[in-house]
Design a protein around this nucleic acid. Sequence first.
DNA 1: TGAAAAATTAATGTCAGACATTTATCCTCA
DNA 2: TGAGGATAAATGTCTGACATTAATTTTTCA
Lengths: 243, 243
Amino acid sequence: MRIDPKSAADLSAQIATAIRDEIVEGRLIVDQRLPSEAELADHFDVSRPTVREALKRLAAQSLIRTQRGASGGAFVNRLSFEEAYAQQITTSTLLLSMNTVSFETACEARFALERACAALSAQRRTADHLAAMRAEIHRQDQPGLTDEAFCASDVAFHRALVDGAGNPVLSYQLAGAVEAMQPLMNMITFTGRDRARIVALHERIADAVEDQDGGRVADGLSALEDETQTLAARLFAERTAEA
Amino acid sequence: MRIDPKSAADLSAQIATAIRDEIVEGRLIVDQRLPSEAELADHFDVSRPTVREALKRLAAQSLIRTQRGASGGAFVNRLSFEEAYAQQITTSTLLLSMNTVSFETACEARFALERACAALSAQRRTADHLAAMRAEIHRQDQPGLTDEAFCASDVAFHRALVDGAGNPVLSYQLAGAVEAMQPLMNMITFTGRDRARIVALHERIADAVEDQDGGRVADGLSALEDETQTLAARLFAERTAEA
DNA sequence: TGAAAAATTAATGTCAGACATTTATCCTCA
DNA sequence: TGAGGATAAATGTCTGACATTAATTTTTCA
């Protein structure tokens, strides 16, 4: 584990990369303790603050965790699905908000991904998943529901559908994508959405899931995509007409 | 933008979170310059090293970039697809290597995701995408190819398929997943894979893409999944028999 | 007068050493 | 034997300084 002091890059960045490589390539394993900051500083021939900056970079990516006190130190962190998930949502959200991604493109990707688990979910969903979907539909049908609550319920509905596939890797990938894109979709369709039609489409999807008919689930999702795209297009047209 | 000095969390973590929120919620926009380290230290009433640790955390997530010299400083970074991509691959790779995810589960997720863009890719792929796929197939058929090169070509083939959908959001999500899972799949199937059968299945997929038949592309992917799962199961059985 | 060269300045990058705080462990003493 | 305090080791934070980089301004000289 070496660094090049003559490189143009920051020392802390180089050190972080060196340690990350050790982790990714398996030479540092989960829960293993890294040398203390003083020892690392000595090893890399840099000061303690520089080492600390490097460790903070790794901590920001959940690659390590630190503990104070005697027998404390930095430990290789077992990346949990939850952490990976949170990171994915942040990254995807920023990516969509900072780049000129059209609503059409984002929406298309979101539904394509969700259809990817339609067949598996229809086949494997438990009664719990189905009940969760029904419960969210019922909530969405309440008249007094705020827009924020409706959107949250929308996310929960799709989350239950995705989880029904019983594949944590798939859930991690998809739910991250769905959650990241939902705010963007809501922001655009907030005002003009017709709740009754959304609820009807959700019911159609839930019925297909109940019947364990993957094809019909996918069709329902496609119909929901159409509805969303049409709505967005209409709103966009109205907005440009006003201006 | 405030922090709570009495909180249990690290000051640098609190500061990083505070600034990240400003960025995510759009109060700090792309290319905007943050206050200097000294000004931030003053504002949060902490020392400069503490501020620096916070900034390094943000830099590790590509949320900011720093420039030295007069008129330098920290700037809000436009997260590019490439950066988002690289982060996703790192996260997914670690997640798979550190958790007890069965090969079966990872493989299932990978192919389900890839099938998600089969229809779009078949419909929209350009001649370039098809040519790229054919080129990789041709490379995979060379006798002298090393295992590493074969795997790299395998990734490139699927990458071309995914990119054919012409949806950057989808490419970002899927190619990240495919790339993260490929090493795991290769590691397991390295020794026992029958290249001729893989190449034949790739050809079947490419043919379907050429004919712009999304259903057949999906079928081809499913066949490839079966082949991979069967191979893995056989290797796993052999390995346990030896032990 | 104009352009090259030098000085200035403002920022990040790095270092050294100190103190504060937390926590596991050992030791003492009742 | 058990409880409580001393001890040690580690991270967390601060102060102050210097190094390095790069834009800007000033100076100098052809």
